[in-house]
Amino acid sequence: MTKQSEKDIAVKTVCIAGATGYLGRHLVREYLDRGWQVRALVRDRVKAAKSGLGGTLVEVQPTRAETLGVMAGADLVVSALGITRQRDGLSYRDVDYQANANLLDAACASGVGRFAYVHVLNAQTMRGVSLVEAKQAFVERLRQTDIAATVICPSGFFSDMEDFLNMARGGRVWIFGDGQRRLNPIHGADLASAAADAIEAGRVELPVGGPDVFTHEELARLAFDTLERPMRLTRLPDGLRRAVLAILPYVTPAHVSGPARFFLSAMGADMVGERHGKRHLADHFRQMVNGD
Score class of each variant (00 low, 15 high):
244 V>Q: 02
3 K>R: 13
263 F>G: 02
229 R>M: 08
144 Q>S: 15
216 H>T: 01
190 D>W: 12
167 M>I: 00
19 A>G: 11
64 R>V: 12
54 G>S: 08
271 M>Q: 14
171 G>Y: 05
146 D>W: 02
113 G>W: 00
129 V>E: 04
63 T>I: 08
151 V>S: 10
268 G>L: 01
160 D>G: 12
80 A>R: 08
217 E>M: 00
54 G>K: 05
266 A>C: 11
167 M>H: 08
92 Y>F: 15
206 L>R: 02
207 P>T: 03
13 T>I: 13
25 R>Q: 15
182 R>Q: 14
222 L>F: 03
272 V>S: 08
190 D>L: 12
292 D>A: 13
113 G>M: 02
223 A>R: 00
3 K>D: 15
40 A>W: 07
71 M>K: 01
179 G>P: 02
80 A>L: 08
160 D>H: 14
38 V>P: 09
254 A>H: 07
212 D>C: 04
256 V>R: 12
116 A>K: 02
113 G>A: 15
80 A>C: 12
245 L>K: 05
101 A>I: 01
215 T>D: 04
42 V>R: 06
48 A>N: 09
126 M>Y: 08
223 A>M: 02
277 G>T: 06
117 Y>K: 02
73 G>P: 07
16 I>K: 11
201 A>S: 14
222 L>G: 03
72 A>H: 11
141 R>V: 04
178 D>M: 00
138 F>K: 09
194 A>N: 12
218 E>L: 03
51 S>Q: 15
106 A>R: 05
103 L>R: 01
26 H>E: 13
260 A>Q: 07
82 G>P: 07
66 E>T: 11
15 C>R: 07
230 P>L: 03
216 H>M: 12
184 N>H: 10
183 L>G: 08
116 A>P: 02
31 Y>Q: 07
131 L>S: 08
235 R>K: 14
212 D>S: 12
60 V>W: 04
34 R>G: 08
19 A>Y: 02
105 D>E: 15
232 R>H: 12
140 E>D: 14
40 A>H: 11
1 M>D: 12
13 T>Q: 12
194 A>G: 15
113 G>Y: 00
131 L>P: 00
64 R>L: 11
161 M>I: 04
137 A>D: 13
115 F>D: 03
74 A>S: 15
67 T>A: 09
141 R>E: 11
82 G>M: 06
118 V>W: 06
24 G>M: 06
135 K>W: 00
28 V>S: 09
266 A>W: 00
40 A>L: 09
259 P>H: 04
162 E>H: 08
21 G>T: 10
216 H>D: 10
278 K>P: 00
76 L>M: 13
183 L>D: 03
